[in-house]
Design a protein around this nucleic acid. Sequence first.
RNA 1: GGAGAGAUGGCUGAGUGGUCGAUAGCGGCGGUCUUGAAAACCGUUGACCCGGUGACGGGUCCGGGGGUUCGAAUCCCUCUCUCUCCGCCA
Length: 424
Amino acid sequence: MLTLKFIQENPQQVIDGLAKKRFDAAGIVQSIIALTESKNQTQAKADKAKAEMNNTARDIGLLLRNGKTEEAGQAKERTAILKESIREMDQSFAETDEKIQQLLVQLPNIPCNLVPWGKSAEDNEVIRSGGSFPEFAAEALPHWDLAARYNLIDFELGVKLTGAGFPVYRGKGARLQRALINFFLDEARKAGFEEIQPPFMVNEASGFGTGQLPDKEGQMYHATLDNFYLIPTAEVPVTNIYRDVILDAKELPVKNCAYSACFRREAGSYGKDVRGLNRLHQFDKVEIVEIAHPEKSYEVLEEMVTYVESLVKKLELPYRIIRLCGGDMGFTSAMTYDFEVWSAAQQKWLEVSSVSNFESFQSNRLKLRFRDEAGKKPQLAHTLNGSALALPRIVAALLENNQTPEGITIPAALVPWCGFDMIN
RNA sequence: GGAGAGAUGGCUGAGUGGUCGAUAGCGGCGGUCUUGAAAACCGUUGACCCGGUGACGGGUCCGGGGGUUCGAAUCCCUCUCUCUCCGCCA
């Protein structure tokens, strides 16, 4: 969430910035400023009363020690009124603060200047593309047909065991999953990311920290008996490592990577978008997370994009990198690049990675700060993350694009991790 | 799952109703000494909020929440977590 101070000091910048996300912030900003003013006045009054109370209590202690019981009794009577007014002011303060918090969490992050105007995916900006489109003699088969033909993925069996969107990978299909996970983790390690193996379930506080709660509650699986949530991405546990942490500037940038299974209820999805591997309730992903100095975060973002690009290049997939327009961006992001790979049989681009700079939007809620030098005040760090990469659509594209009459070929870079170069 | 003990500042650890944001040690930072370093010695060292241009002043925070009291780290209730023993077990 945005910081109160920033909104107070730059109300117009907030309103103008959020217009790019097609969000009308004028009313909320105005309310926040008015409420904050009233909250501050209440605090000033309450603090004064509390100071008086503290002094009186101290005096009573001294009087009692000196045996002046009567005077102490008189002082006690005076505190009763004071006490009641403090109670009222504290209550009013808490109520106002609660209102402000409720308004604050409604404000999306402000897009950075580079973000193009636009209202939907059509207005996104293609930054660059690479790889070549495959050509086929016969008609290309979609990955669900190929998965069945080579016995790689059993979607129906997943339905039997759990439900739709929980596929069972088997044989070379399972080995391909494992190979991709290891490939992505090893590449990330070589690029300087520390590997983390996080819990796949998190508590409520972590859900709040990264903003899944309270808004996207319905998108997460919830183990109600213990009040744990299955993670929708490793971003949640990994970023929450740094909740309530003050880092030393020397430690920046922090670079972490993590594999996790990801669980998403995907309530509301239907139709051909969910066919095969296109949209699943459980899937595998390697995530990269960075914590950067505010002055460096956009450099870091570009580095992350370059890194993710190196992965799709090694997998020899036709890809394009897109800068999302304001209208298509997520709530928490200041700038997002999406990576898409071409699905030859479905004849469409599939999103396989989303790399974002959240600036201080996440760290404000997380209370993730750093200290430039000893003695100086801590300030909010910038957080960034990206998929590097999500498996299912990569697998879909690999299967579809590399199909030959003899079988499916494995990109050379992946063969050492797979242990085979052909699925047939 | 049953029984017991505990949660204090970056860490260890005192403090059981009255100037306690909190003794002490370690660590960190600054200095003296040294060619330099170590050792020793001296000083310093939490976060957040409000008011003030500022010096500074005030407030909140001793796991979370609530209560008792003029006054709570200290007493009571409750939740969470940790440890020990027993049970079970990959």
